[in-house]
Design a binder for these strands. Sequence first.
DNA 1: ACCTGAACACCGTTCAAGT
DNA 2: ACCTGAACACCGTTCAAGT
Lengths: 209, 209
Amino acid sequence: MKIDLKKQSHSYHHGNLSRVLIDTAVEIISEQGAKDLSLRKIAKRAGVSHAAPYRHFKDKNAILGAVAKEGFEMMLRQTQERIARNKGNELDHFAISGLSYIDFAVHFPAHYRVMFGTRLENSYFSEEFKPESIPVFKLLRDIIMVNQEKGFLKEGDPHEMAMAAWSIVHGFAMLRIDHHIPDKEKDENKVRDRQRTVVLTLFSGLRPE
Amino acid sequence: MKIDLKKQSHSYHHGNLSRVLIDTAVEIISEQGAKDLSLRKIAKRAGVSHAAPYRHFKDKNAILGAVAKEGFEMMLRQTQERIARNKGNELDHFAISGLSYIDFAVHFPAHYRVMFGTRLENSYFSEEFKPESIPVFKLLRDIIMVNQEKGFLKEGDPHEMAMAAWSIVHGFAMLRIDHHIPDKEKDENKVRDRQRTVVLTLFSGLRPE
DNA sequence: ACCTGAACACCGTTCAAGT
DNA sequence: ACCTGAACACCGTTCAAGT
């Protein structure tokens, strides 16, 4: 029995093309880099004409916006799960958020690049992607507040403290995924151990004197 | 007496077109963002055909590479000058390098974006732009080494320490120029004071226990 | 309602041809 | 030696036309 290729390639014509477009965008970025992503490539690989995506997204940036949104949700979920699994205290949870952030960037570089890409250049980095509006940022800020109450972190505006912590892991993650920080160790556990040490060292600037 | 426009617009035909192209690229990025920079726009504003730049640069990325190179040189000069002017000790010089880095990003965002833009996506971010090859990074590493000898900073591989410090200011600078860190203070001195406090706080993680 | 194909105004890059 | 203009293979976006 022959497979009806046409029917298969049209299976998304019932409402899931936008889902396919998002996944395809991530695929292409992973393979070819964010720079070489084009709407026409996405459409071609998804099996539709290059005009079809406009039925589901305002423009190319809107597709990237959907990728970013998904990324932030994944990041939040991963961080929450790791904290839930951990038996440690609130200070451990603070360290876990930082490590989880870096791990996310390393494991999902395509999403991460879109989330923290060019920003000002891209109109999709608008109101909805300001730190204040991102749940995972709020989670970090709440963790910092609890740590301050317990005396595990120094006093100061929690929002600014969260920004400082974010700066640290963001800079580190960027250098990591651009391979400017050597992950020379073959053993992945060793890499994560070193990462943990670096993050704890950096975060120690936020501890009380 | 009439001005000979043609002669004026051809005054770079004696070897300085590459200089004009670099400056024009920075201009356009400042005005329209790095995303909307095109070779054809650069050429048009420089008053040459869109094929002319290829006599001076291998491709579009080579022009961006020249902008990045210039940026790193400016950053080095600014940092060296500030250290030379300062009366403080080596630990002050460490803080100054960090602040100088952030100030550079804030004052020359066009250069900074090209220097730390998309990297892996852009082939211009090659061997010559690895941290080890950048003089201003070597300066930071040397400052860290001196501070370690004096006991102002904790022990550890100076290269990794430099990476950590770089991560911090890089992350902070990125959030700053993308306006994710509020510079709500009208008074610029207040902004710089707050910046100084944040950087010193972050860097304190690198001090001895 | 959803998709197509042609059209438009742009890209980066190459290359024969001009001075 | 240096630059031009046409050409090529791409872009993002729009829109009348098809089902």
